[in-house]
Simulated scan of single mutants.
Amino acid sequence: MLFWVSEFNAWVLFLCIKMTSPYFLRKGSGVLARDMCKAANNTETAKNRERNKHVSGVKAVAAAAEKDPDTEPQIWLSEQPPAAGCSASPAAQTRALGSEAETDAGKARPARPRRRALRVEYEAAGGPGVGQLERDQEEAKRDRWEPRHFWKQLENIREMRRKKDAPVDHMGVQKCFDSEASPEVMRYQVLVSLMLSSQTKDQVTSAAMVKLRGHGLSVGSILQMDDRTLGELIYPVGFWKTKVKYIKQTTEILQKQYNGDIPDNVPDLVSLPGIGPKMAHLIMDIAWNKVSGIGVDTHVHRISNRLGWMKKNTKTPEETRVALEGWLPRDLWSEINWLLVGFGQQVCQPVNPLCSSCLNRHCCPSANTSKERRQTPSKKR
């Protein structure tokens, strides 16, 4: 009994000493502090994981924005990550958490991409936008084929034709009609002169037109004239008998269907006896002052192929016309016939072309070939 009482008293005494001793109090507070720090560290680790997830998401958004600047970022940091450490006071920890979150968010958040400036295209009434027209013109320019030395060759031909002293300049179709006659008579004379010029030199055509005009060249006078008289007046033009028949038939059609005038379009002109595409386009240009196409005769056909103005050589004047109209600027269609006809009469002749005096001898792909053809007759002689 006494032993039990003494043991109890010793235990009570020990508890009293433990509760009042600074040593035990300091030890207990240390244990409590360790437990608190351990719990805080666990919480900090979890919060760091959450913060890293947010930062990774922001970096992924920034990378996507760099790849596609037009995409507007949709994910931003919405939570503030906690600060590391447990020794600071709650207020200091709150301030540290806020500043750290702002710093991380500032580093991770990408700059807002600049929006691309939109090109305004004004649309004209009833037509495509101006920008579309510019693109179509650029594309057409890229797709259009053009001979390598065309502009240089053209300028050289203009220089060689500067004096305008070829037969076509003085006795061509432009000089054969009566400029003082009425418009209907003038247009009819242009038509007749072109019919006579086929397979005929300008000198012979001009002489025949002078004789016809002396007998009153008009629709009425030709209808009253017999075939024999007409043949005598136009002789010696090439195929004069056939041309007498064509002139008579065409004049009758003009009197019945066009009231003595000539058609003002290519399809109707081509439908007339003895009128082909070359004549029709020249009639439209000279008589009606309208450029409907290129008048291609033997000179234009020959020289265009010699100069390399075709992607591939053409066999007929009509093939040459279609090929030239495919790439030649339209503002040159009227001039090209006059230039090449006179150039062919004086320099680039069918036989024995004068390549040595031609300004294009250094840029003409047929210069050497033409020289060989020119030397051939002299060897035979």
Rank of each mutant, 00 (worst) to 15 (best):
R112C: 06
P110H: 12
S356K: 15
T369P: 00
R144L: 14
M186S: 12
A367K: 06
C348L: 09
T43R: 07
E123V: 14
R161F: 03
F8G: 13
S378K: 08
G57V: 06
Q349P: 00
H301V: 04
D169M: 09
E319P: 02
E123Q: 13
K278I: 00
L118W: 03
E159Y: 09
M225W: 02
K379E: 08
V190H: 04
S29R: 15
G98S: 14
P353F: 02
A181C: 05
P353C: 10
V130D: 10
L324Q: 00
G131Y: 08
C37L: 05
G238Q: 06
E180R: 15
L97M: 10
M186H: 03
A101R: 00
T250M: 05
R119K: 12
A84C: 08
L339M: 06
A111Q: 06
S197H: 02
D264G: 12
R115F: 05
V61I: 15
Q93F: 14
K248T: 13
H149N: 12
P377E: 07
G344F: 02
D226S: 14
R321V: 00
R142K: 15
H301E: 07
G57A: 11
K152S: 14
P110N: 06
S6Q: 11
S304P: 01
E79H: 07
Q349S: 03
R148Q: 11
N352F: 15
A108T: 09
V185D: 00
L97A: 09
V55H: 06
K163Q: 09
S193F: 04
V192D: 02
R306L: 10
F239T: 09
G216N: 08
K152V: 09
